[in-house]
């Protein structure tokens, strides 16, 4: 593993359980020892289903070690909220990217790449490549 800072991965879902479970799954599948930082922003602060810009901003900050952060989001308001935040200056760290990726496969691919020391663009590409994991 490289000595430099690792890219962080953030899971955004309508559901806290989904975001946290996928984060745990990604850590387990990324395997073997330390992984890159991965945080979850699921549901609303009250624990309801939905999307919270506050939780997203907090999760991105916690995953940010200076090498950038890749966000993987499920659908609807999760995607739109991240995109609306990225469109405004100062709401998220400058090196935050939303990956156009499926949640589970994208999160695993991103975390494996990030944990191996890949740079921001490569982690985004790894997550987005996950659309090509054909199952049939």
């Amino acid at each position: 593993m490289a000595d430099r800072a690792l890219v962080g991965v953030v899971l955004v879902s309508h559901s806290r359980e989904v975001a946290e479970s996928v984060a745990r799954l990604a850590v387990a599948l990324a395997g073997g020892g330390e992984t890159a930082p991965v945080t979850a922003a699921g549901g609303t602060p009250d624990g309801d289903l939905g999307t919270s810009s506050e939780l997203i901003a907090d999760a991105v900050r916690r995953a940010d070690r200076g090498a950038g952060v890749v966000v993987v989001a499920d659908l609807g308001s999760a995607v739109l909220t991240v995109r609306a935040m990225l469109a405004e200056d100062g709401e998220l760290p400058r090196d935050t990217r939303l990956a156009d990726a499926p949640v589970v496969e994208g999160a695993v691919a991103a975390l494996v790449g990030a944990s191996a020391g890949a740079d921001l663009a490569s982690v985004v590409a790894a997550a987005e490549d996950a659309y090509r994991f054909r199952k049939l």
Partner: peptide, 18 residues
């Protein structure tokens, strides 16, 4: 609106006004 709505209408209306 972006920070309180919790659904897709938050970022959409928020973007319109902002």
């Amino acid at each position: 609106l972006v920070s309180t709505v919790g659904g897709a209408s938050g970022p959409l209306y928020g973007t319109l006004l902002r």
